[in-house]
Design a protein around this nucleic acid. Sequence first.
DNA 1: TAGTGCTGGTCTCTTTTTGAGACTGCCAAG
DNA 2: CTTGGCAGTCTCAAAAAGAGACCAGCACTA
Lengths: 136, 136
Amino acid sequence: MDSKIVNLKSKLEIYKAMTDGGNLSDCPVRDVIQGLSGKWSSLLMAALAEQPYRFGELRRLVPDISQRMLTQTLYDLQRDGYVHRKVFPTKPPSVEYSLTDLGRSMFGALQHLLQWAELNHDAVRDARAGFDAAQA
Amino acid sequence: MDSKIVNLKSKLEIYKAMTDGGNLSDCPVRDVIQGLSGKWSSLLMAALAEQPYRFGELRRLVPDISQRMLTQTLYDLQRDGYVHRKVFPTKPPSVEYSLTDLGRSMFGALQHLLQWAELNHDAVRDARAGFDAAQA
DNA sequence: TAGTGCTGGTCTCTTTTTGAGACTGCCAAG
DNA sequence: CTTGGCAGTCTCAAAAAGAGACCAGCACTA
């Protein structure tokens, strides 16, 4: 049931990479993580990891995202090289979004976290409930 | 150099877990991911995975976080059960933050993503630069 | 021929979240 | 007696996100 951790850097080194020796505003690791830490990024990555989707399909698949945020999140994911945007010159034109190789590679890493969330969400729920009860 | 993926669910299943069969606003997986998707959560988790820190130490360690967001992010992480907050009754009282077992477990999963970011940030940078150039 | 709907968005307005920084109370050192 | 460290809170401004109207172009329908 455990997933093996192979060749990971020490925790110390990971943290160092995120502070980048003081050059905080330009730290590349934080820069990359920032792009993934939006509210909708991981959800859309998970959807597109399953299969390519069109704009309207994604909208129906994730009904509680606003059109504005769907547009913008897809734009950001495309800009960072995770998502490919292909326009078909039909009438009206349709647009298909799919993962790039880089996107699939990144999702391979993100997947661990999503998996953890699925396996442990009741522990988090319990912690939250207990904390709120103790505060009251 | 590759890290082995053991016993991961199919991509389809992960996405399904995030949509939870239509029960979107109450989906536990999205709920958990939401708590981690803040701007500072992963950075503070990485710091505390290295060693316990006090409030002021964290503030100096991450100089570009505002005091308000440091307080609030630590509060949220504590509420979700990842972080333990221990008050020492010195004068003035000092407060130490450390990871719980749940927090360490979660960081084990998060670590893959941080590691990926470190290994691939130049690819993302390149993609971004290329995209911006193409837009201009 | 007028109305309806689908395509993938943009625009504006309001609400929420975040950031910057002043302020608190307590105590110890200089 | 002023200064500084401790761990925050409070207020106000700026940025981000959400809600929903609106756009052009074409197909289908009545």
